[in-house]
Amino acid sequence: MTASLDFQFQEHQPADPISLVIRRRIRPGSEPEYEALLTEANALLSRIPGHRGVGVIRPAPGEHEYTLLARFDSLTSAAAWELSPERAAWLARVTPLVDEQVSFEKQPGLDFWFTPPAAPQLRQPPRWKMALLTLAALYPVSLSTGWLFGEALRPWLGHWPTPLRALPQMVVVVLSMTYLVMPAVTRWAAGWLRKM
């Protein structure tokens, strides 16, 4: 019922970002207890160094499948969670509520941008397409934020040291790409991405 990650260090560098995607079908009537345990998992994960956020996709009405997405800055950080006694204790409490462990996956790098969570059987687009689409989306965002932080805000930020000036620009780029640009671009290019 529970699965453990098979960490393959030869495939992914320990410093690459990684997302763990866990899909579970919860026993009918156990949803409130599972929801409480999800809140607890979020608190536990927030204490793991390198943890970068959690997403939960709740089931549609009449369904019982939950998807938990945990993002980490590296495979090493993900392994720390996977092997932690806190996770083992949490899983022991979750197991009686689970009807079926649907899947347990690890997705390296930025792959979570391209994988629809509700389609576990969908194959990943070719990496060259993901790289090309990311470049096409990132280029205008990078140019516009470069202009904004390099020219438009120069009177306010020009005296800051370069690393400090770069930080707000990177925050804007990452947030824009994650929450605005990539979701829109991957929807727009979904047909092209699906063609292998």
Rank of each mutant, 00 (worst) to 15 (best):
M130T: 09
A70M: 01
A136T: 03
G109T: 11
F149A: 03
T67D: 00
R93V: 11
Y139N: 02
M177D: 04
Q107L: 15
W160I: 03
A70H: 07
P117G: 07
P116F: 06
V141K: 00
A131T: 14
D111Q: 14
T76Q: 11
V173D: 06
L133I: 11
Q121I: 02
L68A: 11
M177R: 02
W128F: 05
A137P: 04
S144C: 10
A152C: 03
W90P: 05
V98A: 06
T115K: 08
T95C: 10
T95W: 03
V54A: 15
P140W: 06
P140H: 13
V173F: 06
V181C: 07
P168I: 08
K106E: 14
T76C: 02
A119K: 10
L83G: 11
E100Y: 06
P168F: 01
A136W: 07
S144G: 06
Q107G: 08
L75K: 06
W113F: 15
Q169H: 12
P96D: 05
L180S: 10
F149E: 02
P96N: 12
E63Q: 15
L148G: 05
L143H: 05
P126M: 03
V172K: 02
W81T: 02
A166Q: 14
P140M: 07
V54G: 12
M182S: 07
A152T: 08
A80N: 05
T178F: 11
A88H: 13
W156A: 08
Y66H: 10
V102I: 12
W156T: 04
L132G: 06
P125F: 04
E151Q: 13
W160Y: 09
T67W: 07
T95H: 13
K129P: 01
P126I: 07
M170I: 08
M177H: 01
G158P: 02
W113H: 09
H159S: 13
V174T: 14
T145Y: 04
R58F: 12
L68S: 13
T162G: 02
L122T: 03
P163E: 03
A88F: 05
E151N: 09
P59F: 13
L167G: 11
V102M: 08
H64D: 15
V98M: 01
A60N: 10
A137F: 00
P126V: 14
L167V: 14
R187M: 04
G191W: 02
V94P: 00
R127P: 01
G55D: 01
R71F: 00
M170Q: 10
A190M: 13
V54Q: 15
G109H: 07
G109S: 12
L97V: 09
F72N: 00
S77Y: 01
P116I: 04
L97D: 04
G158S: 07
D111L: 14
Q169T: 11
L143A: 09
T95S: 13
W188R: 09
T76S: 13
H64F: 15
V171P: 00
L122A: 12
T145A: 07
D99Y: 07
W156F: 13
A189E: 14
S142N: 09
V174E: 13
Y139M: 15
A78G: 12
A131R: 12
L164A: 12
R93E: 09
Y66T: 10
P120I: 00
W160P: 03
Q124V: 03
L157K: 05
A60W: 01
W81C: 08
W160Q: 04
L135Y: 14
S176N: 08
A78R: 06
L167I: 14
